[in-house]
Design a protein around this nucleic acid. Structure first.
Lengths: 219, 219
DNA sequence: TGTACATCAGTGAACGCGCGTTCACTGATGTAC
DNA sequence: TGTACATCAGTGAACGCGCGTTCACTGATGTAC
């Protein structure tokens, strides 16, 4: 970890002081909508549960009257749709894969960045995977992720870097195991501490058949 | 599935009608405490999140004044301690292991029953693994589970039914993957449907080195 | 055998809180004439 | 260049709700004398 983690897309600093905000210019009303989404995402990440997100808390965080949120979102449920998180994660993964030398390294990077994103956005990960929101929406985005993982594995097999097998099944197993790893890291940090990287390598080796990168500069 | 799943320890029927309950006999005041714990466990399972559990809801479910809960539990946090769930799960696993022929079959049964318990108590599983309670307590019980899994794997290795390796690491990998499987089954039932049994077999084969039971009567 | 008292197992009303949501409104800014 | 009007970007007060928690209490039952 340290400096190499993906850039946090949701600002961390605390709530705005009331009165600090000034009304948007005429024609710029949509900016408040943007502020609401950003604040909602930050609160979801901080709280880790969609039921804990409230219209009033979002309004408070922005420094706006609760009523103003209703101008852009008809009710609480509408606030809780978070497609942009996935888009952000997808971009991070795409970027990491680009710089990989071969398909096996690409899969390893993809897997690592997935785990790291979850680690640095624990609350959002929980909302996206454990909350009641995820039952309502987000499935197309998750299917997209699953298909991309299967494609990455398929490329490994085609390049002879992994033994043959059904990419969809292997991807399902890998994603399931990685989800377990991330979930335990987030939910039981005291018992599942540091060895994420090694466990990822073991999963890649045992579930996909990709041996740990042997040509490591140090260690 | 079907008839072979473990007996549900927490009664399912709906809330009691108000007025139906009559005061405990003198000296039997502790019975209300028992009722409170049972009702709290049922509510936790129904709601799937400890934050959603309220003193008033528990009192309502039993048919008692909210004040009466305070006689036995000093505050809401005290209600939320759920050691008995683990004890119940442990007993179910012990029972399943007993009837197994060899260590490999015992490990398979242990793994299956773990997944089945989680499936039949989704809310409690979420509370125990995803909720804020689990950060406070329950770690000794989880350590116990981890050690038992490691011991089961150790017995497989000793019996020559699994290739040699560090049982603690193998157990960690297996438990992580199974947790991922269960978590996805609970949280995304629409995408992770039915093939749990096969995926468990694959995890046992790939992560522990135990091939699927070949002498199956049918299929 | 009778009675005063202690104890048990609860109850009912009330407090202040944050919440979702509705309603009528306000003040600034652009625009038609 | 001036003015009436429309529109935009919000606000403030209020509603009813469920919640945790406190307080003084009630009615039944056992027990000492």
């Amino acid at each position: 970890m340290g400096t190499s983690q993906p850039a946090a897309p949701f600002p961390r600093p605390g709530a705005r002081q009331p009165g600090q905000r000034q009304q948007n210019r005429r024609g710029q009303g949509a900016r408040l909508q943007e502020e609401i989404i950003t604040a909602a995402a930050r609160l979801l990440n901080d709280l880790g549960h969609d039921a804990a997100l409230s219209m009033r808390a979002v309004a408070r965080a922005i420094g706006v009257a609760p009523t103003s949120v209703y101008i852009h979102f008809p009710d609480r449920d509408a606030l809780v749709v978070m497609a942009r998180c996935h888009a952000d994660l997808l971009a991070a993964i795409g970027q990491a894969e680009e710089s990989a030398g071969d398909p096996a390294e690409a899969l390893r990077r993809r897997t690592r960045i997935h785990a790291e994103w979850a680690r640095s956005h624990p609350g959002l990960y929980k909302v996206l995977h454990e909350s009641t929101v995820n039952q309502r929406a987000e499935t197309p985005l998750k299917n997209d992720m699953a298909q991309r993982t299967a494609a990455a594995i398929s490329r490994c097999i085609d390049a002879g870097l992994a033994p043959p097998g059904d990419p969809a099944i292997i991807a399902s197993d890998l994603r399931t195991a990685i989800h377990g790893l991330v979930s335990l890291q987030i939910n039981q940090p005291q018992t599942h501490r540091s060895d994420a990287s090694e466990q990822i390598d073991r999963f890649l080796a045992k579930l996909v058949g990709i041996p740990p990168a042997s040509a490591k500069p140090n260690q």
